Computed example of a mutant assay.
Amino acid sequence: MARSAIAPAEAAAAETARTTSLPTPAALRAELPISPLTAQRIAAQRETIRQILAGHDDRLLVICGPCSIHDPEAARDYAARLAALAAEVGDTLYLVMRVYVEKPRTTVGWKGLLHDPDMNEQGDLAKGLSLSRELMRDIADMGLPVATELLSPAATEYLADTLAWAAIGARTTESQTHRERMSDLDLPVGFKNATSGDIQPACDAMAAASAPQCYLGQDRTGAPAMIRSAGNPDTHLILRGGTYGPNCDREHVTDALARLAAAGWPERLIVDCSHANSAKTAARQPAVLADLVARRCAGEAGIAGVMLESHLVHGKQSIGGAMTYGQSVTDDCLGFAATADALREAAACLRAQPVGVSVSSEASASRPRASS
């Protein structure tokens, strides 16, 4: 009798200990709003990226920044430097900052600023969501386009309005849930090839996310909702190498473009200069970038963009103890000075080539789309 009488109370206490309420997406957006000027700028940035991916703007899209964000102040410092560099090379390169606040884990490990902002394995999603949104908003306010990997579908509504571009990573590109959620976003989304290197899952993801979907999600109040999406017409492929090595060489790129054409997609893609394409060695990224730029200058027009993992300080470090300011705590990253040198060299190479298409203005009107 006594045992059964207290069981419900124990169960309630256990449930309280297990769960923590979070602000709704609407509440966090209201607390940390995007200004009308920044919202207009983000819409124009999305349109510029669409034009580059479509081949109507001949600049090279460059998604560049830390493998992961663990120190918001160092990220703001990096953003200020990247914004200055963007003004310098903006005639040939369109720079977008990686602001990755979630990290996929094959088994266990630190999952990023959004999940564990204090890096103490305790987790604090309320703090992480707030810090992540505030950081993305602040960088967007600088005029720099913001990119991230959307790892947790439930986090998307908290962050999407700050983004100019998003990626779905190699581990989640086969996920139906991610494909459905991306189908309802008003921004370009790149799907990476699978960890094996196979590009078919990413091509399938592009097809699924570009189609109308009906799926179980949440509205901005956080309530469960049936969502009908119109489909995202701005999905594209990212080559990041895989288990069997890099796929950034001419043969792999040509094959990928042929497969895109056969499926009715534009023959345009992004190549990740890091991960397996540089054997996860940051110092190799400039050589990969230089090769891609030289090939593009020689006529490989399908290379629409590149990705780089870069931070203030070269290398990577472990979490804990006295930590180096501006150095990655996840993958090895290229230091900012070397990054700037590599991008200046890329810009110089591209300037030497005849311009094939006109550069679109971010002041031009965007085509009507649903709001993110």
Rank of each mutant, 00 (worst) to 15 (best):
A322N: 14
G90N: 00
V108F: 14
D331T: 07
T148M: 14
E345A: 15
E300I: 11
P354S: 08
T106C: 04
L82I: 12
W110D: 13
I139W: 01
P286G: 09
M226G: 12
A290I: 07
T324L: 05
A27M: 02
N193Y: 03
H236E: 01
A276N: 13
H275I: 10
I238Q: 11
M182A: 14
K316I: 06
A74N: 12
P246A: 15
A283C: 11
E180F: 03
G65D: 09
T195C: 02
Y158K: 08
A223H: 15
D249A: 13
A80K: 06
R367S: 12
R76D: 08
P354G: 08
T92V: 07
D204L: 11
L95S: 09
T162G: 00
D272P: 11
D341L: 08
A287K: 07
S210D: 01
E31M: 04
A261D: 06
P286M: 13
E88G: 00
T339Y: 13
T173S: 15
L350R: 09
L187D: 08
A27H: 00
P233M: 10
G356E: 14
D198R: 08
Y244D: 06
L22N: 05
L239I: 15
R76K: 06
R367M: 03
R259P: 04
N193W: 07
G197A: 08
L257M: 07
P145Q: 07
A370N: 00
L269M: 07
C273T: 08
P201V: 10
C67R: 11
D161H: 00
L216A: 09
Y78W: 08
I49S: 05
Y244F: 14
N277F: 03
L113V: 04
R3D: 06
T281S: 11
S152Q: 08
